[in-house]
């Protein structure tokens, strides 16, 4: 196959008005995709994949998703098993419910979003902020230069996802003795709690793997 002749996959990146998505767009472009912001469901068009970068507080995120109609779009899109990539809050929002503000989430994956609590050890800081390793429980969509265990990615979050079903756990990360679900996968739905677009070469490699799987 002549790779240079291939069309770049078209990624629709959900912009629900919560912040800057420049680095998300640049990272996907660097990974070989053509990425564009969509601020309304009507402009998604025939995208090859839907990207959901979550930012800010989950309460505001859910409210804005409902106001814009993106909540239904994400449910329908993932129900149809079309390629999807969620980032940070974009992983948390997929679950049933979050402790943060006692918020009902999208309910696509059964499970709870819980706060890190380490009352016994003040050395364990919240937010969980910085570089931590991911142990991949399932294969990446295509071969990448990411090791099955040990490669580090950039995290910043105070809440973590606890899926009901083990089989959606794509990657796991240890913090304070807790092994939490740091990435999820079901069919062609992928999401990461960490920020690949802030994770230098390894993050770009992960995006590249997803793009090449399209």
């Amino acid at each position: 196959m002549n790779i240079s002749a291939q069309r770049q996959p078209d990624l629709a990146v959900i912009d629900y008005g919560m912040g800057n998505l420049r680095s998300v767009l640049r990272a996907w472009e660097k990974a070989g995709a053509s990425a564009r912001l969509v601020d309304h469901p009507d402009v998604i068009g025939p995208a090859d994949a839907l990207v959901f970068p979550g930012q800010g507080a989950i309460v505001d995120t859910m409210r804005r998703l409902q106001q814009t109609g993106f909540d239904r779009v994400i449910r329908d899109w993932t129900e149809a098993d079309k390629p999807f990539f969620g980032i940070c809050l974009g992983q948390q929002a997929l679950f049933t419910h979050s402790e943060e503000g006692d918020t009902a989430c999208l309910g696509i994956l059964p499970g709870e979003v819980k706060r890190f609590r380490f009352p016994q050890d003040p050395a364990l800081k919240v937010p969980h902020m910085g570089w931590n390793s991911v142990d991949w429980r399932q294969r990446l969509p295509v071969d990448t230069e990411i090791a099955a265990t040990g490669d580090q990615f950039y995290f910043v979050h105070s809440y973590y996802t606890a899926p009901v079903h083990r089989e959606v756990v794509w990657g796991e990360t240890e913090y304070g003795g807790l092994h939490f679900c740091s990435a999820v996968n079901r069919g062609r739905l992928y999401a990461t709690q960490f920020h690949p677009e802030k994770s230098q070469a390894k993050g770009l490699a992960l995006y590249q793997g997803f793009v090449q799987s399209l």
């Binding site: 800057n20 420049r22 680095s23 640049r26 990272a27 660097k30 950039y154 910043v156 920020h195 677009e197 802030k198 994770s199 230098q200 993050g203 770009l204």
Partner: peptide, 11 residues
């Protein structure tokens, strides 16, 4: 900041 955020993939 704009130029840096476009070229560096780190916080």
């Amino acid at each position: 900041v704009e130029a840096t955020a476009s070229q560096c993939f780190m916080p």
